[in-house]
Write a protein that binds this DNA or RNA. Sequence first.
DNA 1: GGCCCGTTTATAAACGTTTTAGTATTATTG
DNA 2: CAATAATACTAAAACGTTTATAAACGGGCC
Lengths: 336, 336
Amino acid sequence: MARVGIKDVAARAGVSTATVSHALRNPDRVAEATRKKVLEAVEAVGYTPNKLGVSLRTARSGNIVVIIPDLTDTFNAGIIKALERVAHRHGYSVLLGDAQGSESREREFAALTESRQADGIILFSHRLPFDMSGGRKAEDLPPLVNGCEIIGIPGIPCVAIDDHQAGFDATRHLIDLGHTDIAVITGDMVTPSSQSRLKGFRAAMAEAGLGADDSRIVQGDYIFEAGERGAEKLLMQKHRPSAIFCFSDEIAIGAIYRLREQGFRVPEDISVIGIDDIPVGKYFDPPLTTISQPTADIGDTCAKLLMQILKGKSLAQDEYILPHQLVVRGSTAAPG
Amino acid sequence: MARVGIKDVAARAGVSTATVSHALRNPDRVAEATRKKVLEAVEAVGYTPNKLGVSLRTARSGNIVVIIPDLTDTFNAGIIKALERVAHRHGYSVLLGDAQGSESREREFAALTESRQADGIILFSHRLPFDMSGGRKAEDLPPLVNGCEIIGIPGIPCVAIDDHQAGFDATRHLIDLGHTDIAVITGDMVTPSSQSRLKGFRAAMAEAGLGADDSRIVQGDYIFEAGERGAEKLLMQKHRPSAIFCFSDEIAIGAIYRLREQGFRVPEDISVIGIDDIPVGKYFDPPLTTISQPTADIGDTCAKLLMQILKGKSLAQDEYILPHQLVVRGSTAAPG
DNA sequence: GGCCCGTTTATAAACGTTTTAGTATTATTG
DNA sequence: CAATAATACTAAAACGTTTATAAACGGGCC
């Protein structure tokens, strides 16, 4: 199929390419009659604009790139879904980058803006995918919004929940149930989210006059296996905690699995609470008590902010904190 | 930042733009000394090629678009992950299209090839995102590979498991355990996969001399809620089946949830088997018995086939059937 | 009729690259 | 040494658009 271009339309309609272009993009700059002629010609020859040509000329690709740590995490997937809708509504396509935790891959994807294949970036990471040495400032970076992590670099807008408060609330829930010996399986501690959640945990414990021995805090990351390993470690200790606060639902699910395997009942023997509220949590046995993150809202907000930036508006704030919510289901109860 | 182009490099290195281009793409067509000069200049001015320019000129975008029904399904996510790796290795970026089951959105994403933003399509659907009226043949379509559904259109390569056999194997597993009254919660029956699985189910039942009353077959689609509703329907019947074959793990999880809620134990009272082997299945209580689909292999194969096509090679077959596997865990047992 | 003005259309440059076809330079050969 | 071949490079066209600028046109007015 010989590719049909704007020239063919112009020839067919008996006008210049400029007129065709105007007829399609600036309909009011062209006489009604010719516009109709052009539209008919478009139809007749079956013309679809070559977006590459358009992008090259207008210096706008119409793509944004989304960089996420792990596509198989349903928490991420929910965010992306929401975000894609907004982008789509604004005429942007989403270039998806599953970085799988690798910094080099994060950078590769970010480089898509450099090569003009994308106009902006929505990032979900604790670090920027750029070499910030040599006094590079936030202003020099491509349009960028970060999600789920408050990275605290002036000029970089971040969208997330109040992780400190989330950590506090989860812990508080356990304390309210009567637990005094509470363990934690964290996410990767390089992430601000995990750090804040841990601080929130400590704050709640301190407020209740409870201790938080270091042996009660085991490091993980946000995946199933971390929950398994974490639970294992905790079970090996002489005195066992009566409740475990997991920094993600996947961790919680992994932990519950291992606890069950070792003959412990949740929540009768040990309570477990997660964070995220992934869809499957509700179906789990026991149904997962968790802190719900507003995934749709996070995706929405990230995309909307980036759209703002791409329109040239500058943002009022650097931090956009969205509300989380305690969802009490069946995996937590008063200690035996 | 004033954008730096190939001209700037050329000026800096004291050569023509053609030489710069050659130095970068066809290193052997240029003298070693000048190549070095060019590379230094690239470094000095901080040049990154504008991919839009390249794409326009070469008529190759370097993108492929992946159209999936639902990003939040971890089964899909696993496939995409694999597929993205292969694409990436071949220098392609993945444009992700979450069609959310909407045909119009499938078509919108497919149109990215029309507008030259993508060179090919990996589709996961039971229908083609093109108007095939007017005698349009498969040869006229953009490079395309379909996954997870054998759509049986000559010239369209499809990658999937043997769904008939999978349906047979799952059913056979239940029969082998001693079940005689087996119900089914299907996926969307417009999909060939569901149709084949159902036929496989019927074949296994017939082979064992067992009946499959229509009231035992409830239609759903591949999500949690379908499992809930399906289980509900089955529980309302006078005689209850002793086993349920669910056409996806999400369905199975939804069904188990509802069964449990109604006071039935799985597998003691009712056995449940799924298909897919999504990661969370292992952690479920009871751990999910299922038919494992080779997600990584599916993604891999889809991508590799598309790469072949993009290289201009034509494929030997239309159907690429990958092996599935029965994974016996805890959600199935002999009937009480 | 000539002039001005608004409306409509056309010409051509520009976006950043690759690549064809050709030129200049050097090496090889008879 | 001239002729030829091989090598290294360049000029300019091309990809498909948009858009700045200019031109054409028609109408109203004096």
